[in-house]
């Protein structure tokens, strides 16, 4: 076996070992949105992890929801934005399916919303390659993975007043 093939096989093995059995995920273009923007079916067959969702929520490099939203209990986040509504009680106001729809593509629930579509890959004007300022090629990688969306949704449903 050529050397590079062997090492890439090892890399693949390592990836499988590290992430566990791959969860079945719904691709961006296959997500079914109801008329009100909600998404009933989970995007991944592995249940969302609320603790991981809380981390993604405030992580600058992934969800960065904290850039625009305040949650009063999140005193761990150094700065919280005021662009969107405070999310205290979001789990009372919205069903899990509605929250999934908002996180996957908020513009289906709130037309023209400033909130980015986190599980969308194409249809952009001058799409970039991340934050490089250079051109990107559609389909772009989604801003959050299917599993990350489920994790964030699992966190949001815990936000009760």
């Amino acid at each position: 076996m050529p050397r590079h093939a062997a090492s890439s096989a090892i890399a693949m093995l390592a990836a499988i070992v590290l992430t566990g059995p791959a969860a079945a995920e719904t691709a961006s273009q296959d997500v079914i949105f109801a008329e009100d923007g909600s998404v009933a079916a989970p995007l991944s067959d592995r249940p969302g992890d609320a603790a991981e969702g809380a981390r993604i929520y405030s992580d600058k490099g992934s969800g960065n929801c904290v850039a625009c939203h305040v949650i009063s209990t999140r005193t761990d986040a150094e700065f919280q934005g005021t662009i969107g509504p405070a999310l205290d009680g979001a789990g009372d106001r919205w069903t899990e399916a509605q929250l999934r729809g908002i996180v996957a593509d908020a513009k289906r629930t709130f037309p023209d919303s400033m909130m980015p579509s986190l599980y969308k890959t194409s249809g952009y004007i001058r799409p970039g390659d991340g934050f490089s300022g250079k051109a990107g090629t559609e389909p772009l990688p989604t801003l959050l993975s299917a599993q990350q969306i489920e994790d964030v949704v699992a966190y949001l449903v815990t936000l009760k007043e």
């Binding site: 600058k60 960065n64 904290v66 850039a67 625009c68 150094e78 700065f79 919280q80 934005g81 005021t82 662009i83 513009k107 400033m114 980015p116 579509s117 952009y124 004007i125 001058r126 799409p127 970039g128 990107g136 772009l140 801003l143």
Partner: peptide, 23 residues
């Protein structure tokens, strides 16, 4: 509304001046 975040200058500087976008 440019880019993957689909934001126009107006989203930030007309609709949301005075607001905080993180820090």
């Amino acid at each position: 509304r440019y880019g993957q975040l689909q934001l126009a200058c107006a989203n930030c500087h007309e609709d949301h001046y005075g607001d905080w976008i993180r820090a």
